[in-house]
Amino acid sequence: MDREQLDLESARVMFLRVSDAMVASKDLLTELDRAIGDSDHGIGMARGFEAVRRELERPPFGSVGALLHCIGTALLRSMGGASGAVFGTLFRGGGARLHDERALTSAALARFLEDGLEAVQARGGARTGDKTMVDALEPAARAARARAGEPLARALPAVAEAARLGVERTRDLVARMGKARTLGERALGHVDPGAASVHLILRAMAEFVSA
């Protein structure tokens, strides 16, 4: 089924599945953070998306923006850490201009990721190449913009793939931000955990629309 777009209820269910996926990725993300950070990223994301799951159980949401804002707020309030701020901001900033949208289209996805990226960068100052989640988010946003006219079910897998490639590229980067910064060259060969989270979120979204 090649879904053109998702209505609000389907989008809500999709983010419930995304939440399941993130909670299930706890150990994986913790391992990634253990390699170049302080081992708490998976714990934080799991806590955050457990809170999201609780929030999403109370529909309805009036717009895509409201849904994303709700997710972002749940992350912000429950997670803490760098990633609580960053992922909370991604969703809240990304939803800011989607309060009139009644469906998640590819165009709305592109706006979510672009505005989210901008908000994240305003919040934390990370640029491409700093070895952060921005390195997955930025190519994902670009891919979404390029496919903004396509059906969502075609766009999302491509967006997720762009994020995956972005994650892979972080292997070759030395961190210029966060706890991995002082690792220097020792960070080479390891992907950035926050970038991996971006990919996992988009992959779970893509799987939902393709299912």
């Binding site: 708490d40 934080g44 309030r77 997670m79 803490g80 850490g81 760098a82 609580g84």
Partner: peptide
């Protein structure tokens, strides 16, 4: 008060 090794939330 944050979680172990994690900044507290903005709300906190």
């Amino acid at each position: 008060v944050g979680e172990i090794f994690s900044s507290p939330t903005a709300k906190s």
